[in-house]
Write a protein that binds this DNA or RNA. Structure first.
Length: 228
DNA sequence: ACCCAGGGTCATA
DNA sequence: TATGACCATGGG
């Protein structure tokens, strides 16, 4: 028997106690954070970080200067991030969108739902990237759903894992009582945790969620009701 | 040599 | 709606 009830709130506490503050995108500018969100798509963060460093050295880490580059030149600078040709096209489209919408000031004036919808219309910005930008660059209360979140939460029986993105996002934003800074931290914690745990192994050794995985496996779990 | 990473798009059924 | 190919570099 677990000595605690698995909820989205209690899991957050467990992960935070275990891993501590993750400090994702702590003090960079909004635009640079957004660049990172696109550059890290399907790529290890260390590689995306290299690409950002290259952009800085090239003086192309601001929207006005990046927009002046040719797509080919941009692709060369971000090569370490992988998929550099497609990402160059995406960053060009994203930067044009950024400038067309009044930069961080104009964008920050938009309501969260409007900002999200506008982002989703940009080529190369899908749901997860849009939410990452809305959360990490604009500090809005949004829960980012990724493959790790699906794994970790399904592992403890709070979700099945194959729900639609918007469904999971709404569920988490409803059940988790944290504000934007906690949503920020939670997503990072899940990624950090998911890199090691809740993968394919049947038993989580040294898992901060220990007890739950086994418990959920042996006994029939109660219906997944994720209430805060 | 093999697997995967802080995804998204497009073609196909 | 739902898979699968594709994008490409770097680290374990």
């Amino acid at each position: 028997m677990p000595s605690w009830i698995p909820t989205f709130n209690s899991i957050y506490e467990r992960l935070f106690d275990r891993y501590g503050p993750q400090a994702w995108w702590p003090a960079q500018g909004r635009f640079e954070i957004a660049l990172g969100a696109v550059l890290t798509q399907g790529t290890a963060w260390t590689n995306a970080a290299k690409a950002i460093r290259c952009l800085k050295e090239a003086g192309a880490d601001r929207p006005e200067t990046l927009a002046r580059l040719s797509e080919a030149a941009l692709a060369r600078h971000i090569r370490p991030a992988g998929f550099h040709n497609v990402k160059a096209a995406r960053l060009m489209a994203f930067t044009a969108w950024w400038l067309d919408n009044g930069g961080h000031r104009g964008l920050n004036a938009l309501p969260t739902a409007t900002l999200r919808a506008s982002l989703l219309a940009v080529n190369g910005v899908g749901r997860e990237t849009a939410d990452a930008i809305v959360l990490y660059a604009f500090q809005r209360r949004v829960f980012v759903i990724d493959a790790y979140a699906r794994r970790v939460f399904s592992r403890v029986g709070l979700v099945s894992g194959d729900e639609k993105y918007e469904h999971l996002r709404a569920k988490l934003e409803d059940a988790f009582t944290g504000e934007a800074p906690e949503c920020n931290e939670y997503h990072a914690l899940i990624v950090e945790h998911g890199k090691v745990h809740c993968r394919s192994r049947p038993l989580c050794e040294g898992c901060p969620l220990a007890g739950l995985c086994e418990f959920r496996k042996r006994t029939a779990p109660s219906p997944a009701g994720g209430r805060g």
